[in-house]
Design a protein around this nucleic acid. Structure first.
Lengths: 83, 83
DNA sequence: TTGATATATCGGGAAAAGTCGATATATTTG
DNA sequence: CAAATATATCGACTTTTCCCGATATATCAA
């Protein structure tokens, strides 16, 4: 999912009909591609968010998720320096 | 453990009486510090080795483990570029 | 060769993570 | 407000991981 969200235009073409990509991709799109149930994907995304890897924005009935690039940079540096 | 092996001289002073640090630290030292059973530590070390994070060298009845710094560098880069 | 020491492997029970269906909450539309 | 849609949360079950004791293997020393 994290890799998918790197290139939302390529991995979630449906999202274009639905809304732009500014806020990210909504849960339903990710769920469809993942082939897991809605509840599983929702929980998974919320875990990734709590971990700081993605950000969410609620717009109406949809929740959009997008990557927080800083977190990946930080993780990479953390491994370099602390591990 | 991976962090301990970064500074063996500091984290495993006993090892000095036992042998040098060239080959790394032996399982018993790591086990004592970890506070886990011998079997658990041995298995854990072998998993880390299979993953490439540490290297082992058998000398007599002892097995010495030390870090493979390249693996950490590679992981850091992998996160930067692929994730 | 026998006993002692160090490590590795095996099998099983406990803890954690993954996944689901059912249901709750929030929003939009009529 | 009621129905429809999107997402979140809950409880239960399954799978995986963690960790242990018991045992096997390898080496050393007498």
């Amino acid at each position: 999912m994290l890799e998918w969200l790197k290139e939302p235009e390529i991995n979630f073409p449906e999202q274009l009909q639905h809304a732009g990509f500014e806020h990210g991709v909504c849960v339903g799109q990710i769920q469809a591609k993942a082939g897991l149930t809605q509840s599983t994907v929702s929980e998974y995304l919320s875990i990734l968010q709590r971990a700081g890897f993605i950000e969410s924005k609620r717009v109406g009935q949809w929740t959009y998720y997008k990557r927080n690039e800083g977190a990946f940079e930080a993780l990479s540096k953390l491994i370099q320096t602390n591990l």
